[in-house]
Structures are given as C-alpha cells and as structure tokens.
Design a protein around this nucleic acid. Structure first.
Lengths: 148, 148
DNA sequence: AAAATACTTTACGTTTACGTAAACTTTATC
DNA sequence: GATAAAGTTTACGTAAACGTAAAGTATTTT
C-alpha cells in the first residue's frame, strides 16, 4: 500500500506549493474529504493523491468541476454497477480525444516556436555582422576624419 | 501571401465558433486590432491568425494576458532591437519548458487512463461472466423449483 | 417607408478560483 | 499563564472571461 500516513493542511500546502485557502476550497467543492480530529482537518494519502491530480488537471486546463466529475465518476465506478462502468468508459474516451487535441495544439505550437526562434537567431546574426563591420571600419581609418 | 481577404466580426465568430462578444473582448484587451469602416470593425487575415492563436492558447491553458504578452513581444521583436530579440528567445525557452511539463502531464494522465480503462473492462467482464452463469443455471434446471 | 438584419457602445451581471481580513479555538513553547 | 503558532469559520473582495440586456446606428430587403 501507500505511505499510509496522514497529513495536516499546511503539510500538503507546502508540499504542493498551494495556499491552505486553496486546499480548504477544494474540500468545500467536494474534491477532498479530510476527516476531523476536533475541528482540525486530517488528510489521508488518498486526499494527497487527489490533490496532486487536481493540480495536474489545472495545468492541463481542467476546471475544478471537471476534475470533480471524474473523481465522482470513478468512485461510483468502484461500486461495480454496469451502467456506471459503461459511462466511465465513455467519459474516458472523451478525455482521450481531448488529450489528442491538446497534443496536436502543443505540436503546432512547438513548430511555430521553432520558426520564431530561427528568425530571432537570424536577426541577431545580422546585428552581429553589422557590429563587426563597424569595428573594421573604425580600424581601417583611425582618426582619418581629421586628415581631410 | 495569405488569402488577403478581410472579415466581418460575425464571419470570424462563425468560423471559430465563438461569440461576437468574445471577439470584441479580445480587441478590448488589445489582442486584435481591426480597422474601421465608419464604426464597423474590419478584421484582417492577420487578425484571423491571431484569433486562431488565441483559441489554441486557451485550449492549452494560456490566459489572454499571457497570449497578449507573446503577441506584443513578437511585434517588438520584428523591430529588430537586440534586447528585444534576446528577451524573445528567453521567453520562448520558458514556454518550451511549460510545454514539456504539459506533455509530461498528458503522458501521465494517459497512463492512468489506461489502467482505469483496464479495470473497467475487467469489472465488466466479471459482470458478464456472472450473467452467463445465471443463464446456465436457469437452463439446467428449468422449473426445477416446482419439482421439490 | 417600414421592417428586418447586422453592427455598435454602454454597462451591469455571472462564474471560477481563489485572496484577504476579522475574530475565534486549540495546541505547543517559553 | 502569557504568548506565539497553527488551525478554524465567516464573509466580503477580486481578476478573468465573458453573458446579457438596453438602446442606438447603418444597411439591406420587402
């Protein structure tokens, strides 16, 4: 099994570099389900994994409610109901399509960045050439202006 | 050169499936620069390209201001100033790193979706097996309950 | 010329994902 | 036992990215 530990809110916040406010917000939205000792939140390693997934989702452009839907769907999937299983498979297929689109977008962006970078380097090379020409000019005619 | 045409706001909106409101908003934020005939906006093919880039940026999780920064930077880059060129190269490197992160995230997500899908299919197979067993049972003992 | 269509500006409303401040308990430290 | 440190709830504020309604202009169609 996992590192069967529990975590405080600030432990998680530090580890993933988010504010405690965010963590509480994620709980509020039903994405995390910490238990309580008194009124203090205690997060399980499952919560920790989910937090990681939430943040990755965000980096991939997923909203919190999208991520929550996936979480909920997965939980219901575990119950083993056939309908839920099929729904999950369908959802997975949709997400895969979405990821394909993103991969295309990224590939396109990378290509365009390649050409952009190339143009930058060309322009820079031009500038360097001009600089060298200027230097040569001042060496060939040192103080020549004064000898008119 | 490009398809040197011009576009009305609704042409663009239809083509890229966004509202005219969004297009006006993008102009407001300085991402598009249509000219005017009277008070009516006229978009160039450059605007069209930019709109495409804006939307791709959104799909990749970029904010409008991030995209605007890139546009502005690129415009200044064209002026050929050395400092701007170097700044652009730096920015490009950063974006590349960001895309690398996204590619990692996507790869991870795909792996996890693979295992999730596998589990779903296993669970479904289990259900099918049980169904078949039930069917066989009712065939082997047709109305057997009544012959106690 | 009246009506429909496409465009405009102005401006307030909405959702998401938190930030920030206030006021309060609980636990650890001096 | 005072005080600091870490936690809590409540609640108002905010930036981003539009939605939506109001009210007006310009052009095209009937």
């Amino acid at each position: 099994m996992d590192i069967k530990k529990t975590y405080s809110i600030s432990e998680l916040a530090k580890e993933f570099d988010v504010t405690t406010r965010s963590v509480r917000f994620y709980e509020d939205q039903g994405l995390l389900h910490p238990t309580r000792r008194g009124q203090t939140r205690i997060f399980s390693s499952k919560d920790r994994v989910r937090l990681k997934l939430i943040l990755r989702g965000k980096r991939m452009g997923f909203s919190l409610s999208e991520t929550k839907e996936l979480f909920d769907l997965w939980d219901e999937t575990l119950s083993g109901n056939e309908k839920q299983l099929l729904l999950m498979l369908d959802t997975l297929a949709n997400k895969r399509a979405q990821l394909e689109q993103q991969k295309n977008d990224i590939a396109q962006a990378e290509m365009e960045m390649d050409t952009a970078e190339a143009r930058c380097r060309e322009a820079l090379a031009e500038l360097q050439k001009k600089k060298r020409q200027q230097k040569r000019a001042t060496k060939e005619e040192p103080e020549s202006i004064e000898q008119k």
